[in-house]
Simulated assay, not measured.
Amino acid sequence: MKGFSYFIGIYMLSLLLTACSATPGESTKTREAESLLASLKRIPQKGFLFGHHDDPVYGIGWDGDENRSDVKSVCGDYPAVMSFDLGHIEKDSDKNLDNVPFERIRKEIVAQYHRGGMVSVSWHVDNPVTGKDAWDVSDTTAVGSILPGGVNHEMFLGWLDKVAGFMNSLSLADGTKIPVLFRPWHEHTGSWFWWGQNLCTIEQYKALWRMTYDRLQEKGATHLLYAYSPGTEPNEIAEYLERYPGDDIIDLVGFDTYQFDRQEYVDGMEKALGILTEVGKMKDKPIAITETGYEAIPDSTWWTETLLPVIRKYPISYVLVWRNAREKKAHYYAPYPGQSSADDFVKFYQDTCTLFVRDLKDIQF
């Protein structure tokens, strides 16, 4: 077992220092959120966490089963990071945009916390002007319309309150709120979401982040960490940070990228990880590959011959692949039993750099 046996002492020390060194008003985060952040900074000393979106709620050939996971079915272990999406919570729907009940998501977040793992949450929120999905870029006034003074501002504050309500419901029996990494307004260096680069100004994008953060803080969601995750479009540090909303808001920096052409993917990863490593040092933030993958994983050795050789060279805290859709043919990013890359994924799992739930038995996020 590639355990974290020595890490418990470091982790407990971080808890003690957090409790003893903070002065009133110095931090607006809960103790648990601060401990998660400290742990994310230390993870690269031993490797990186592996994550999978919607991992325990559906997969290839199944939907809604309890205690099931395509990743676990292949390697015998759960991902150390699980992510979920809040899209449609703004509509008062009981299910998200991928037809997963919010109550089930809540249950799985609690379960992942009890396993000792971590949770990330994204929000593919519908276009507030057109009412269509997050990918509707037909109107360039959406961001401006929800900022203070905009025609949809009050409506959008209500949407943020629904997010806050869900986040605040993520608690244990004793009332402790489960720390979560929140990742809104992602991939903004592209223009396929209504908050993308060509759909709003730099000032509007930063104001969107500030409004989001301030409202969730006001509503008591102080157990959240925040991730900034553009794509691989930036070619230098200044471009990466062009729309960065501020050190006081952002806790982790990352990027999203997917493979289409292998060499372009590898080159893009190297470029982005080089930039990200420098930004992490400059800002004293943990870094991560917040979304990646190769749809349907047609390369049987992709895990150990494409992904791993690149990312093991950089001090990332985690890498997360996207979902295994049960409603779309060949739209999956983690292997399932019998899939062509499953054996290679087991080798990936066995590598000393990759960390899954069992590797975290001595540490709780």
Rank of each mutant, 00 (worst) to 15 (best):
F166I: 10
K91N: 08
G3E: 05
W185Y: 15
D174V: 09
E218R: 00
Y58N: 04
H52I: 14
S191L: 12
P309C: 14
G254Y: 04
L160D: 07
D247Y: 08
E233S: 06
D70P: 05
D267I: 15
A173D: 13
P230V: 00
Y11T: 02
D248I: 04
M82S: 15
R42A: 15
G51H: 04
R262M: 06
Q217D: 03
P128N: 10
I60H: 13
W322L: 14
I43D: 07
E305K: 12
L208Y: 03
Y78V: 14
L241I: 15
E291Y: 06
K107L: 12
P56T: 06
N152M: 02
W194H: 07
P335Q: 01
C200E: 02
V125W: 10
M82P: 05
D94N: 13
A227R: 01
N99H: 10
E32W: 04
D256H: 08
H114N: 06
K132M: 09
D70A: 04
V346C: 03
P315E: 13
V357Y: 06
S14R: 11
G254I: 01
N198F: 10
Y332T: 02
I60E: 11
K206T: 06
N198R: 14
A342Y: 07
L37N: 13
W159C: 05
Q197D: 11
Y213C: 04
Q45Y: 08
P184N: 15
D85S: 15
R68T: 15
S120C: 07
Y349M: 03
K329N: 04
S122K: 02
P234Q: 09
I10M: 03
R358Q: 13
N67H: 14
G87L: 08
L273R: 00
G158C: 04
R115D: 05
P315C: 14
G338A: 04
E233D: 05
V310R: 03
L276H: 09
S300E: 15
L199G: 02
I202F: 02
E108Y: 03
